[in-house]
Design a binder for these strands. Structure first.
Length: 505
RNA sequence: GUCUUGUUAGCUCAGCUGGUAGAGCACGUCACUUUUAAUGAUGUGGCCGAUGGUUCGAAUCCAUCACAGGACACCA
């Protein structure tokens, strides 16, 4: 049962004692008139004053008790609000008769949220503190906080009870502030460029725009299934057909796949589409975007990530086929020959499925030998058309597309291309995907005739790009698990959550 | 999905080749009016992740399951 723990029972009793003494343990009568950060800034002159105090200044601060040192007739209390931590000096003789002994010492403890009135002073050890002459309990915490020195380190507790993690670990709060800032900066960057932020459906009749397995949900009134979107791409392009020339959407995608350090079933991306532009323009705007982020986040352009150092002044472009040889070390004479690639893969004891097309096999080579070696930002360009069912063919070579993926620290961060806007070609590509599906690729794109029809009305030449926000934030915060940049990462149910697998009717 | 490591008090962790559980923090009681993870004394606190098995006896050995971490596979 919840709350049966003896420490919790003890604290529930304390709350009742307070109530009986006329103190509401959940009072909302907050009179706070400053934050801790402001208090510390405004009173930084106190140490130069006579007696290192100013009894004419009055402040009311609030926060959660993080540390409590009772020393007989006086105590030191560290309270923390969102802006920072402040030491409070509480002495018996500065509080109402009996309050210190019967209320404060007995019934207020670490974890409680209190409000303190007093004046600034500097202690003998030189710490700017607040000398309390009034102390009010705002919120009684009936569950005790984790250990004050080690905090919570158990990752499972940290993810499942993120609120505890946030209470105990200041650097976790910092990571999520940066995440928020990244999203805000991204929004501003594209708005300043004249892009329009739009929202497109999360529930799709056809899950399109990416290679991924969708989640299924059900619409009761219509009696039909819907798919949670795996990408907003096809809707955003419909908007370009409709005449918007620059749109973006920052929101969640859902993919019904495995979970690991870089995959969460729901993840955030930005996709943007830009009419009358090509993927070459996207390379430029991407460099500009990173520069903008680094400036506003005050990050060093030589960014440490794990034991790597990424040089964000060193963006390069490299065609995929060329990268196989120059980065991956694959012999140049085999990269355009299906049979030779198959032999090469077999010689390396890798999976070599001879049903795969040349383009797919080149993709295999890239994944196997190149991707993890791309540390500094690298735009890999000229993707085989087989791997890019939504991208425009190169005018010079019909086997490759005007596309790039941006790799940083051995990981894909962005995917972009000049959009395919020939409806007949698009129809044929969907049909080819259908064939791939027959061959067992259960993540091949679904035919979307409504989208093909939209293209038939004419979509201006357009370039579009997607950037995975979670992986970007991982990079910028030097985190190595996507769970550390998601406030509430997906977790398996503990034990009593019903699972649809044993549903019986 | 495979392999691997872990799961012991509210938290952080010990617990040997099997003999019915230990520390620190927290909490209770006492002392202490400038401390910094305050200090000193003392006490409470446990279905040892779950279920089976081996054994006179299991936190410990074995099996299965659950969850988590890591690696690999799959995946953009």
């Amino acid at each position: 049962m919840i709350f049966e723990n003896k420490f919790i029972q003890q604290r529930i009793e304390k709350a009742q004692i307070l109530r009986d003494a006329g103190f509401n343990p959940y009072s909302n009568q907050s009179k706070r008139n400053t934050t801790i950060e402001k208090y510390l800034n405004v009173n930084s002159d106190i140490e130069n004053k006579e007696n290192k105090r100013d009894e004419n200044r009055h402040y009311i601060v609030s926060g959660r008790i993080k540390l409590l040192r009772i020393m007989g007739k006086a105590s030191f209390v560290k309270i923390e609000d969102e802006s920072g931590m402040l030491q409070i000096y509480v002495a018996r003789d500065n509080l109402p008769e009996d309050f210190y002994n019967t209320i404060f010492k007995k019934n207020i403890e670490v974890g409680d949220i209190i409000e303190v009135t007093g004046y600034p002073f500097v202690t003998g050890k030189g710490e700017l503190s607040l000398h309390a002459n009034k102390l009010v309990l705002l919120t009684k915490a009936i569950s005790p906080l984790p250990e004050k020195f080690h905090g919570v380190t158990d990752k499972e507790i940290r993810y499942r009870k993120r609120y505890l993690d946030l209470i105990m670990n200041a650097d976790v709060r910092k990571t999520f502030r940066i995440r928020s800032k990244v999203i805000s900066l991204t929004r501003h960057f594209f708005e300043e460029k004249g892009f329009l932020e739009v929202e497109t459906p999360m529930m799709h009749p056809i899950a399109g725009g990416a290679n991924a397995k969708p989640f299924v949900t059900h619409h009761n009134a219509l009696g039909i299934d819907r798919f949670l979107r795996i990408a907003p791409e096809l809707y955003l392009k419909r908007l370009i057909v409709g005449g918007f020339e620059a749109v973006f959407e920052i929101n969640r995608n859902f993919r019904n796949e495995g979970m690991d350090a870089t995959h969460n079933p729901e993840f955030t991306s930005i996709e943007f589409y830009w009419a009358y532009k090509t993927y070459k323009d996207l390379i430029e705007i991407t460099k500009e975007y990173f520069q903008y982020l680094f400036e506003h986040l005050n990050l060093p352009t030589h960014l440490p990530y794990g034991d790597m150092e990424i040089n964000f002044e060193n963006f390069t472009e490299l065609p995929l086929i060329e990268s196989l040889t120059s980065v991956g070390g694959v012999p140049a004479n085999i990269v355009n020959d299906k049979e030779k690639i198959l032999d090469y893969l077999r010689s390396k004891n890798l999976n070599a499925d001879d049903k795969l097309t040349l383009g797919y096999l080149q993709g295999e080579l890239f994944d196997e030998f190149v991707e993890e070696k791309l540390i500094d930002p690298t735009f890999i360009t000229e993707y085989p058309v087989d791997l890019s069912p939504l991208a425009r063919r190169s005018d010079d070579n019909p086997d490759i597309t005007e596309r790039f993926e941006l790799f940083i620290a051995g990981r894909e961060i962005a995917n972009a291309f000049s959009e395919l806007n020939d409806p007949i070609d698009q129809l044929a590509r969907f049909e080819a995907q259908g064939a791939a599906k027959e061959c067992g690729d259960d993540e091949a794109h679904e035919m979307d005739l409504d989208f093909v029809e939209a293209l038939s009305y004419g979509m201006a030449p357009t370039a579009g790009q997607g950037i995975g926000i979670d992986r970007l934030v991982m990079l910028l915060t030097n985190e190595h698990s996507i769970r550390d940049v998601l406030l509430f990462p997906a977790m398996k149910p503990l034990n009593n959550e019903p699972s649809s697998d044993n549903e019986e009717k």
